[in-house]
Design a protein around this nucleic acid. Structure first.
Length: 471
DNA sequence: TCCGGAATCC
DNA sequence: GGATTCCGGA
């Protein structure tokens, strides 16, 4: 046997050329980080290959977002066999393993395209980051004004931080929360959505992956988790954004960011957090063309704002473009009125050109499927070969009732659909998470009065006091 | 080329 | 559980 059993065959860092791909967190490329498994899983391995430029001739992102083509099936199989010490591995077996993912909805086959598969980001992300699953959790459901929710979970940064033990928090800017960068008070603590690069979105947003840096220890300028820096030029890009810098080995392929898929497949209310398309999107997108900022110009880093008072969801304006249309428009409520999920804008164009460049096809080319690869495709799994149709799947289809919802504007400009905070009932009961999440005191750096959690208690106390007075 | 069942291994 | 291997069928 010539099995080398090199467990880290692909581990040596490679030059950090950006790989056309996705803003997966770094751990996604790390076999040792494979959730629930000590062994590398095939889809991790695939991601790993996709991320490494030296394997671009073997496997590469192509076409739709999340879509990749195995240019050299035998080589991929060989590499997989080496990794798994299976010298007899071949593409047939490997593809069987890939098919194994169909039911799990991690992957699905791109029909009509040879050796072409597509990651289901919503699944991949949700499997590994329950935060994106919180739309299904009481945590956010409880916040759902639109559904009459009025409970008051502990929305303190500490509490939310505790929800994401996997997330790094070096205390040196990698915290999920921004502190001290904004005025104290409701804006004092913001869950850093920019810590979730794969959440950053626009539509039809094409993003670059965090692979300007290698998959392993990095030293990004801003020390973002997973080494992704949304502020870097090109952190988010447009499908028609400027070409790559000279010297890049890769075509100017840009891919819609998984967030679009992930969020758009989330049930209400999280789907409501999707930034609305606005006329400014195009302008901003156009602005993004200049200076090679790839859409960050004029935009704000994604923020998940967690003001002290729970009870309402709001979101800042963002540019998602035309994909979601107007139906999911939810704007920010007045400051201090509740949990604010402000997703800052990431400027995005609405162009349709992808600038895709077909990679060299060793096997006679990839047949393009006329029925796929639309400008934007919210992952539609309806054609999956999965049998688990009863499996809950986050999805916002055109047929979704959400599409019929009236636009909701919370910014007060057009009349809030939400009641003022003063009219909201006080929290009815502690959120279940409260029992699980210890409330930690505010950090010494923050005066108690500025602590979101303290403010919450104070406000709650005020409410109770007023009720007593009135009664 | 792709699919999925089944048995099997680790 | 997550493949791996084999296989027949489309």
């Amino acid at each position: 046997m010539d099995c080398n059993c090199v467990s880290d065959l692909l581990l040596p860092p490679v030059p950090a050329l950006w790989t056309p791909g996705f803003a997966f967190p770094d751990w996604a490329y790390k076999p040792e980080s494979s959730p629930g498994s000590r062994q590398i899983q095939l889809w991790h391995f695939i991601l790993e290959l996709l991320q490494k430029e030296e394997y671009q001739g073997v496997i590469a992102w192509q076409g739709d977002y999340g879509e990749f083509v195995i240019k050299d099936p035998d080589e991929v199989a060989r590499l997989w066999g080496i990794r798994k010490c299976k010298p007899h591995m071949n593409y047939d077996k490997l593809s069987r393993a890939l098919r194994y993912y169909y039911n799990k909805r991690i992957l699905h086959k791109t029909k009509g395209k040879r050796f072409t598969y597509k990651f289901n980001f919503s699944k991949v992300v949700l499997v590994n980051y329950p935060i994106l699953d919180m739309a299904n959790s009481p945590f956010f459901l409880a916040q759902n004004h639109l559904h009459g929710g009025s409970t008051a979970p502990d929305c303190t940064p500490e509490a939310i931080q505790s929800l994401f033990p996997r997330l790094p928090d070096s205390g040196r800017g990698t915290s999920l929360f921004d502190r001290g960068t904004t005025a104290p008070g409701p804006e004092g603590d913001k869950l850093r959505l920019d810590a979730f690069p794969f959440l950053s979105s626009g539509a039809p947003c094409y993003s670059k992956p965090p692979s300007l840096l290698g998959p392993y220890p990095r030293n990004p300028p801003f020390d973002y988790p997973w080494g992704f820096n949304p502020y870097l030029p090109g952190a988010f890009s447009l499908n028609n954004c400027p070409k790559l810098p000279p010297g890049s080995l890769y075509p100017s392929q840009f891919y819609p960011n998984p967030l679009q898929s992930s969020l758009s497949q989330l049930p209400h209310p999280f789907s409501s957090l999707l930034p609305p398309g606005e006329a400014g999107a195009g302008e901003r997108g156009a602005a993004g063309q200049t200076g090679g900022t790839n859409g960050t110009a004029g935009g704000q880093p994604l923020r998940l704002c967690v003001p002290p008072y729970p009870g309402s969801l709001s979101m800042g304006r963002t540019d998602i473009g035309a994909t979601l249309g107007e139906r999911e428009r939810v704007e920010a409520n007045p400051p201090g009125t509740g949990l604010s999920l402000g997703i800052g804008a990431v400027g995005l164009g609405a162009g349709t050109g992808t600038g895709q460049q077909s990679p060299t096809e060793r096997r006679g080319g990839v047949k393009q499927d006329p029925e796929s690869d639309s400008d934007l495709e919210i992952t539609d799994l309806s054609d999956c070969s999965s049998d688990n149709e009863n499996e809950h799947e986050f999805r916002i289809g055109k047929e979704s009732g959400l599409a019929n919802r009236s636009p909701i504007v919370l910014d007060g400009k057009k009349g809030s659909a939400l009641p003022p905070i003063s009219s909201l009932p006080p929290p009815a009961s502690p959120h279940p998470l409260k029992s699980l999440i210890p409330i930690t005191p505010p950090p010494p750096s923050l005066p108690p009065s500025l602590s979101p959690s303290m403010a919450l208690h104070e406000r709650h106390r005020e409410t109770e006091t007023l009720k007593m007075i009135h009664s």
